[in-house]
Amino acid sequence: MAASTDPDTPRALVVTVVHHPQDSRIRHREIAALLAAGWQVTYLAPFVAHDLPVPAPEGGLTCIDLPRAAGRDRVPAARAARAAVRRLAPEHDVVLVHDPELLPATAGLGLEHLVWDVHEDPAGALVVKEWLPGPLRRPVAGAWRLAERLVERRHPLLLAEHAYADRFRGSHTVVPNAVVVPPEVPPAGGARLVHVGNLTTARGSEVMVQAARLAHAASDGAITLEVVGPVRDDASRAAMEAGVAEGVVVWHGFQPAERAMATIDGALAGLSLLRDLPNYRGSMPTKVVEYLAHGVPAITTPLPLAREIVQEAQAGLVVPFDDAQAAADAAVELWRDPQRAAGMGERGRELVRGRYDWAKGGAAFVAALTDIARERSPRR
């Protein structure tokens, strides 16, 4: 379907060079909400770099390929994104960018209608980025904090967490990392642990595999770990491959959102073993909410927001950071009491339905962009 030329049809240009084109927040929540509300969307993302075909135009969505920014190889992606945005921005009511590096990449283009969707803490994340030399990490993080304030003066922001508001001086719309709550799910139980999401050492990939190894042994070979997600560092790849070779891990790699979410259904528990790092402390791990939405209890490290939701709903178990034995013990505890696991999953599901359902968040997101377009669009 060709894009509408009707000036009254709102149009959004959505851009990422870092995230996977099938990223849940970007593609399956925000873009889907815009399309459902009658918007036309042009989506710039690194399809080819992720071995995906560039989708044909359909249902108001037009996709364009960009290079991927990864490690130290980020300049070509930034240049390509700048050129594409310069060309396409005047045809759209809002330009929604999802990567911090796209802010300097588009500087000087006069994009009053550019919106930054803040769903990470770049300064906090820099302290663990292997591609950035160690001595530069803290100075660059400090410089980024100052840059955020400058960006805030020029552009509207959307925040994925209420806690992110502390980084900024003004008031900004919060669009939480809500999830799609399925209407029906099977009860939690069995002997299958799951993990859905990117695999890095910072996200606990090595601890996760070791926990699976220990739980497998303690359950006489019953408990296994099913993993959906791509690896982002060599150590995580080695850990996954070792777990697969030992028969304690089933690793599917990246899967489309529908398949990834279906993996959660009926599992014993979902693992979220993120480490105690600055960029995680103010965020709700989306995977915890996804597990609970599917009626599966979470085994999580004590990051503040994850601990709060799990303990409030009595919907899982909290284990210390970097403690594979504690995670394994939690898994075995639930395996021995499947009724308890099922009850935790149902309580978590009820909490998520009331607080984190994208059916409510999507409307707020579309309303925020509609207001920004009304005030700033170059087409109106």
Rank of each mutant, 00 (worst) to 15 (best):
V174C: 07
D220I: 03
P230I: 05
D233R: 11
T224C: 00
T200H: 02
G204S: 01
G197E: 01
V227S: 05
E226S: 13
S219C: 07
V209Y: 08
R203F: 05
G221S: 09
R203M: 07
R203D: 07
P183W: 00
G189M: 11
G190D: 07
P187L: 09
T201A: 03
R232P: 02
R232N: 02
V196H: 03
R232L: 07
T200N: 05
G189K: 14
D233A: 04
P183G: 08
L193I: 03
T224V: 14
P230D: 10
A217E: 15
V175L: 12
A218I: 04
S219E: 04
T224N: 00
T224H: 11
D233V: 08
V179P: 02
V231E: 09
A218K: 10
G189D: 12
P182D: 11
D220T: 09
N177H: 14
A202E: 14
P183H: 12
A212D: 11
A178C: 13
S219Q: 07
S219D: 08
V207M: 00
E206D: 06
E206T: 14
V179Y: 11
A211Q: 08
A212H: 11
A217N: 05
V185L: 03
A222R: 15
T224L: 04
A212M: 13
I223V: 15
A188Y: 15
A222S: 13
I223H: 13
T224A: 02
S205K: 13
R192H: 01
P230Y: 01
G189Q: 13
P230H: 03
L199V: 04
H216Q: 03
V174S: 07
V196K: 00
S205C: 14
V185C: 10
R192V: 07
G229S: 06
V180N: 10
V175N: 11
V174E: 05
T201G: 03
G204M: 02
V227E: 05
D233E: 10
L225D: 09
L214N: 06
A217Y: 01
D220H: 13
H195Q: 06
G204P: 06
V174W: 10
V174R: 12
A191R: 15
R232A: 08
V209H: 04
I223Y: 14
R192D: 01
P230W: 03
P183I: 06
G229H: 05
N177E: 12
A235Q: 14
L214P: 04
L225M: 11
P187K: 07
T200Q: 09
N198S: 02
S219W: 12
Q210C: 06
L214R: 15
T201M: 04
G221D: 12
